[in-house]
């Protein structure tokens, strides 16, 4: 019984099977990895989990509930959020505004409360600003909190996207190539950060990554995907020694 279960998950685009009959369990509080060659269907799986794409067949169970084909915002509400392979920030807003917007979840004042500036608005809004400031500090973005998101260096944009995701206080965080475009130093830092936030926020994390050091370093369980199908699954050592994985993806050393 995992916190996230994929049952026979399938997605076709016309004649192309991007994801074919994938079964996978993500254990609660674990860090799991999703790897495979380009075009294997990794991002498509994230899009299916988060409701961005409609499932062709199969089921997605999260926290014991069927979330297959629910609207993305409802899936976010149930506790899953993600980052994007091709970063999707609120580009023209500041770092602080990006995070503050995503914090909206932790307030429930109505439009009426905000228009009349009622006490409920003031109290909750104060809480939101504190929460946003805290997240920005944890993610080491304090000195740039008033910068426009689009003007941040690439690595920090990825960090900001994680900060924004954390603002929802999710149970499951999906990271799509968080280290893409980072140098080894930055990748190292990111690894530390991911382990840290997992503990701090009691998160379950599923990562797609091509940096094998990162994946092998922090994941407890890894699924290898090839042409939309599961090729192998297991601990980093299992996967690294799997013949078919070496052939299809890792290559011979």
């Amino acid at each position: 019984m995992g916190i996230l279960e994929l049952h026979g998950l399938t997605k076709t685009f016309g004649g192309l099977t991007a994801v074919g009959d994938v079964n996978f369990n993500v254990e609660k509080d674990s860090i799991s990895g999703l790897i495979g060659p380009n075009g294997a269907g990794k991002t498509t799986i994230f899009n299916l989990i988060t409701g961005v794409y409609k499932v062709t067949s199969g089921k997605i169970i999260f926290d014991g509930k069927d979330i297959t084909n629910k609207e993305p915002y409802l899936i976010a509400e149930s506790g899953i959020t993600r980052t994007f392979q091709n970063i999707r920030l609120f580009k023209k807003l500041t770092v602080y505004e990006n995070v503050l917007t995503a914090c909206h979840y932790n307030a429930n004042y109505s439009i009426f409360d905000s228009v009349l500036r009622l006490p409920k608005f003031r109290k909750q809004e104060k809480k939101l600003t504190e929460q946003a400031a805290e997240l920005i500090e944890i993610m080491g973005l304090e000195s740039r909190k008033d910068l426009i998101a689009n003007n941040l260096p690439y690595g920090l944009q990825r960090r900001l996207e994680i900060a924004r995701a954390l603002a929802l206080m999710p149970k499951l965080l999906l990271l799509d190539e968080p280290a893409a475009g980072m140098n080894p130093d930055e990748t190292e830092q990111l690894m530390k950060l991911i382990s840290e936030i997992r503990k701090r926020f009691n998160l379950t994390i599923l990562i797609i990554e091509h940096h094998m050091d990162l994946i092998m370093g922090i994941c407890e369980n890894i699924m290898v995907l090839n042409f939309g199908c599961k090729l192998a699954e297991g601990t980093p050592t299992d996967v690294q020694n799997d013949k078919s994985v070496i052939e299809a993806y890792l290559g011979v050393e």
Binding site: G51, E71, Y73, L93, E97, A102, H104, Y105, S114
Partner: peptide, 20 residues
Amino acid sequence: RHGRNMIAVREEELASQIVG
């Protein structure tokens, strides 16, 4: 928060959905 959500929708619809 309501106004910020509208601005978020203006900026990036998909990301808005993903943050609920």
